[in-house]
C-alpha cells in the first residue's frame, strides 16, 4: 500500500514539477506570479490532441498503432513535440501582446492581475474551440503491471504509460538541470534571475533571455499537460486544476529555485496521493492547500530559498 501511494505520488508529482519549473522560472526572471501558466498546460495538452489527429491522418488514418507496451504510437510523441512548440509560440505572443508592454510601465501586481485576465481569456477560448466534454489521446486500455509483489510493502502496480511519464519527466528535469548549470544560455538565465542590471553590463541580452524563459516554461507546461492527459483525461480545466498544486510546489521549493520546484512538485504529489486513503479521494485537491498553508506558516521562504537567491 505504502509503495503504491509513493509511486502514485511521484507520477502525479512529476507532472506538477514540470509545470512548477516554468512557473518558478517566470517568477524569478520577470518578478511576477503568472496565473496564465496553468493555461499553457491546458493549451499544450489540447494542441497536442490537434497535432495527434494531424499525424494520424498523415499516417493514413485509422487507429494509432501502439509502441510496445504503451497505449500510444509515434504519432503522440510527434504531437507532444509539435504541441510544445506551438505552446511556446503562444507564450511568446502573450508576452509580446501583454506582459512585455505592461512590464515597461507596470508593477508586479499589474502583471499578476493581467495574468489572471489572460488565464480567463485563454481558458474560455480553449473551451470555445474544443468544447467542454472530456477528450482522450487514446482509448487503448492499459493493464497495470506488477512491479513489486503484493507481499512487499503492499505491492506496486503501474501502467506502462505512467512509467513513461515518470521516466520522461526525470529525463527532462535532469536535462534542464544540465542546461542551467553547463550551458552559456542556462548560466545567462541564472545570471538574469539573480541580477538583471549586472547581467546587462556583463553583455547579456536580457530581452533574449526572457524570451527563452517563456519558451522553456511553455514547453515544460505543454509536456506536463500532455502527461496529465495521457494518464487521465483532457478537460479545459486541466490547467486551472493544476494551478494550486503548481503554486504550492513552487513556494514549497522556494520561489526562483528550479531544483526546489522539482522537489516541491514531488512532495505535493505525494501529499495528494497520501490524502486519498487518509481523508478520501474527494479531498485530494485539499492536500495541496494543506501543504501550501503549512509552508507559509513554518518556512515562508521555501525549502531552497537561499539557493534561489
Amino acid at each position: 500500500m505504502i509503495l503504491q501511494i509513493i509511486a502514485d505520488g511521484l507520477i502525479v508529482g512529476s507532472t506538477i514539477a514540470l509545470g512548477a519549473i516554468g512557473l518558478t522560472m517566470t517568477y524569478s526572471l520577470l518578478r511576477f506570479a503568472n496565473f496564465a501558466h496553468g493555461e499553457f498546460i491546458a493549451w499544450g495538452a489540447y494542441l497536442a490532441l490537434t497535432f495527434l489527429g494531424f499525424f494520424i491522418a498523415l499516417g493514413g488514418g485509422g487507429a494509432m498503432a501502439p509502441l510496445g507496451p504503451f497505449s500510444f504510437g509515434w504519432q503522440l510523441l510527434a504531437a507532444l513535440v509539435a504541441g510544445a512548440i506551438a505552446t511556446a509560440l503562444l507564450a511568446l505572443v502573450l508576452d509580446w501582446l501583454l506582459f512585455d508592454r505592461l512590464s515597461a510601465q507596470g508593477s508586479a501586481i499589474v502583471l499578476t492581475i493581467a495574468s489572471f485576465g489572460a488565464a480567463l481569456a485563454l481558458r474560455n477560448f480553449l473551451q470555445f474551440v474544443y468544447g467542454s466534454l472530456p477528450a482522450y489521446y487514446t482509448r487503448e486500455l492499459q493493464i497495470a503491471i506488477h512491479i513489486v509483489p503484493r507481499d512487499v510493502g503492499g505491492g506496486l502496480r503501474a501502467t506502462p504509460d505512467q512509467l513513461f511519464v515518470l521516466g520522461l519527466a526525470l529525463v527532462l528535469v535532469v536535462g534542464l538541470h544540465l542546461f542551467l548549470q553547463r550551458t552559456t544560455a542556462g548560466r545567462a538565465m541564472r545570471a538574469v534571475a539573480h541580477n538583471p542590471a549586472l547581467a546587462r553590463v556583463t553583455g547579456i541580452d536580457v530581452a533574449s533571455v526572457v524570451r527563452w524563459t517563456w519558451i522553456l516554461g511553455a514547453i515544460l507546461a505543454a509536456v506536463a499537460g500532455t502527461f496529465a492527459g495521457l494518464v487521465g483525461q483532457l478537460r479545459p480545466q486541466i490547467g486551472f486544476d493544476l494551478l494550486l498544486p503548481l503554486f504550492a510546489a513552487a513556494i514549497l521549493g522556494g520561489i526562483g529555485s528550479v531544483p526546489g520546484a522539482v522537489i516541491g512538485g514531488l512532495i505535493v504529489g505525494l501529499a495528494e496521493s497520501a490524502a486519498v486513503p487518509l481523508i478520501g479521494a474527494e479531498y485530494r485537491a485539499a492536500a495541496a492547500f494543506g501543504v501550501l498553508i503549512a509552508i507559509l506558516l513554518v518556512r515562508p521562504q521555501g525549502l531552497f530559498a537561499e539557493r534561489a537567491k
Binding site: 548560466r187 541564472r190 545570471a191 541580477n195 549586472l198 546587462r200 553590463v201 556583463t202 541580452d205 537567491k309
Partner: peptide
C-alpha cells in the same frame, strides 16, 4: 549589453557579482 560587448566595462558599487554562480562561471559567462 551592446556597450559591454563594444568595450565598455562597468563595475557597479553593490551586487557586482553573480552570487549563485561560481567564480569560474562568472568569468566564463
Amino acid at each position: 549589453h551592446l556597450l559591454a560587448r563594444a568595450g565598455l566595462g562597468f563595475v557597479p558599487q553593490t551586487e557586482n557579482v553573480f552570487a549563485p554562480l561560481t567564480v569560474a562561471e562568472n568569468l566564463e559567462l
